[in-house]
């Protein structure tokens, strides 16, 4: 499994072979507060980098989750239906959103690594 890569919209993606797992960052869940609902895409849906792929809702508001790269949804995290707070408790682990079969794994090279992302969010404060 490769290391996490991050988008400026606070999604993370981790490549495992030709399939990548996508979620939202710890910073994102912290900013959202208590997650109460997650709407996941249907299996087989084609998503494009920067396009809406899911919705995450806190008590206060709904936020869009964007696909970090182009791909096809091959799995979604059904556990989030009964326990959306997994996104708060384990944002980069059990709180993952979806798995994508990637059109072009090289697209990950254009995303931030963890050090660059931490530097990026430090600049947002």
């Amino acid at each position: 499994m490769s290391a996490l890569r991050f988008t400026k919209d606070h999604e993370w993606i981790r490549l495992d072979g030709s399939v990548a797992t996508v979620g939202i960052s710890d910073y994102a869940q912290e900013q959202l507060g208590d997650v109460v609902f997650v709407e996941l895409p249907e299996i087989g849906r084609k998503v494009t980098a920067g396009g809406e792929a899911a919705v995450v809702e806190s008590v206060k508001a709904a936020s869009e989750v964007y696909a970090p790269v182009d791909g096809e949804v091959v799995a979604v995290n059904d556990k989030l239906g009964d326990d959306p707070a997994l996104v708060n408790r384990a944002p980069t682990g059990e709180g993952w959103f979806m798995k994508l079969a990637l059109a072009d794994p090289k697209q990950l090279d254009g995303l931030m690594d963890e050090a660059a992302y931490l530097n990026y969010i430090a600049g947002l404060a």
Partner: peptide
């Protein structure tokens, strides 16, 4: 808007 405990 919230404290450390969170809205819930």
């Amino acid at each position: 808007v919230q404290y450390r405990a969170g809205i819930l």
